[in-house]
Design a protein around this nucleic acid. Sequence first.
DNA 1: GATGAATGAGCATTCATTCAT
DNA 2: AATGAATGAATGCTCATTCAT
Lengths: 203, 203, 203, 203
Amino acid sequence: MNKRQISALETKQKLVESAILLLKEKGFEAINVEDITKKANVAKGTFYSYFKRKEDIVNEISRSPFRELENKLKSMKGVNFIERISYYFKQFMILVENFNINICREWLKDAINPNSTPDNKDGKKWFYDIETLENILFDAIKNGELKKETPVDLFSNLLISELYGMMLSWCMSDGAFEPLEWTEKFCKTQLDKIFEPYIIKGS
Amino acid sequence: MNKRQISALETKQKLVESAILLLKEKGFEAINVEDITKKANVAKGTFYSYFKRKEDIVNEISRSPFRELENKLKSMKGVNFIERISYYFKQFMILVENFNINICREWLKDAINPNSTPDNKDGKKWFYDIETLENILFDAIKNGELKKETPVDLFSNLLISELYGMMLSWCMSDGAFEPLEWTEKFCKTQLDKIFEPYIIKGS
Amino acid sequence: MNKRQISALETKQKLVESAILLLKEKGFEAINVEDITKKANVAKGTFYSYFKRKEDIVNEISRSPFRELENKLKSMKGVNFIERISYYFKQFMILVENFNINICREWLKDAINPNSTPDNKDGKKWFYDIETLENILFDAIKNGELKKETPVDLFSNLLISELYGMMLSWCMSDGAFEPLEWTEKFCKTQLDKIFEPYIIKGS
Amino acid sequence: MNKRQISALETKQKLVESAILLLKEKGFEAINVEDITKKANVAKGTFYSYFKRKEDIVNEISRSPFRELENKLKSMKGVNFIERISYYFKQFMILVENFNINICREWLKDAINPNSTPDNKDGKKWFYDIETLENILFDAIKNGELKKETPVDLFSNLLISELYGMMLSWCMSDGAFEPLEWTEKFCKTQLDKIFEPYIIKGS
DNA sequence: GATGAATGAGCATTCATTCAT
DNA sequence: AATGAATGAATGCTCATTCAT
């Protein structure tokens, strides 16, 4: 990477960081592109060198930390699937808590909205969240932990609904509890019960 | 009520009905005040004789049908609280399904948002939903069905989270399942388990 | 018409007049909606109470004086068609000269552009110009001045091309000659020759 | 020419060719500098090594093929001027048709516009077109084909108006006829009549 | 000569809300 | 109560052009 590419990366980083700060403070609707660029000390147009649309920066912000998590999960292929899901859920909630409630609200709004325009398909964070879970379950089937007839699709949706439901409660209560705690409790007490009929014993 | 008052009520009703139709079809963001007044065959300004802000009409729409439900529940004071809750949940979901998914999305967005403007305190539909549940539980304590130490607040929140979580799943799946069915199942299989430790046997 | 309607009409008139002044001075591309509203002493949004799009005001400006001309022509149904066309051409060019060269440039640009979007069909001034000529020719056929087999369509297009060609020359020369003069000469010396084969003698 | 100069020429050529393709497809307004450079596989900035402004490339495109035609005409000094003009008109229209209607529209728009920016004096394609015709007529006077008092200026303008009028009709009809055909007909039937009073018989 | 990151002016349009009638 | 004309803030996005490397 030459100097210019580094400097470009830095500019993008500045934009992302400014956007995170503003997003945490005010939420997506309440800020405009100029707010972001001003905070990043670049010109308005520069924003559009890095993001095609205003909303794209939220995707960037929302996705990249979770991509790391996805990678980490991939490296855990040998691990028992209940543990992997528990790990995912906990890490997910740690990220949620770190990101702060306003960004969480954006994710929820995005999830609530009807499926976006065709050229914006990769907007939905939760599509990727479901994918991550599906992968864990498929691995579990391959590894002989779960029966082949396990309804992967159904379970992925169910668990994601659980996650997002928890986020919804969090936002509704305006951050009154620790979602991480609830999540840990849920994982410990519910996860195995949910999968029970499909678990291959003695594996 | 004199003629003028009746005619005013009719105008308001026309506005509400027009708004429901449009809301079902397009959602709140996609319609404007003029759309509503045009459909209701009144002038734009007339809207502001009945609603202080555009969003107030959504509150009106969201609240009035549930008020009936609240009244009905009040008349069921003698009934077993599990049945009352079940009844509430089912009727709630019937209303949700009738209102259609777009209005449901508005309720969720409203629930997600941080407490609205100071002069709009009565906006949040779900505040009232919680209240309704709290009342049922308090009655149950009075009636000797539930122990005095029952954490009413916690349970109300929990159950409302369940309801709203179901609505969220419904919207995320873009209406792929019947929330009413799920609700009935939930009531039948879960409700008594949840309250079990606080139920006074033999009551 | 009540007071409010009159005042509304006045506002529209102010907008039109301001637009004409600016158009004459700078041309359409060089002015923006705010220029127009400022000159008319109204708010920017007021423009959109009267015109759906910025370009619509040009249509209004371009069409209304020609509508008068069309009406006048309708009242000349008994008159010999060569005279009617001559009259039309001359009046047309008088309007062109009065309007000034910059507005003329807009008409030409509009004519050059490929057929506009479907919801903008009535934009093209020259569609109406052709129609006017067609009507004159159809009348001439009805009146027995022209043979039934006269290719109305072809002639209308031809004559309009002549008119617009003249306007083009005028703009290219930056107003170096009097289009009205040329037009009169053209009408006197060419018109009858063009129609000669289709004229019913002795009519 | 050294390697560098050759490579530079090639780059320019790539830019011109890309621009022609895009212009044909979409027209000047609908494309931007980046479209051109991307198609030419060079960086955006490179464009400005060869053209001072975006519009300059249209001049380049418009002028160079006609320069060849001018040269060819110069080599025809001995030929009868009616034939030379006919030849010019036909070749002109062949180029017009080849270039396609969108580029033709640009020429017209350019011709319509008032004299461009001061530092863009050489922009107007039609200035050169008139010059070409003037040269033919001056040659004809020198050759004793036309009288000395022939109003060269007037005729040049007249004929160019004819050419551009034809182009205008073509664009207005959205390419509904063959301008070349019309031109040939015009040359055959009209040219000699137009010059008749100034032709020196027996030449 | 080539690059491509950065610039920042420029603008149409929407729409909730007000208020004089 | 009803009207509807007027308001004006608010904003995403494009793109020709520059210039440091």
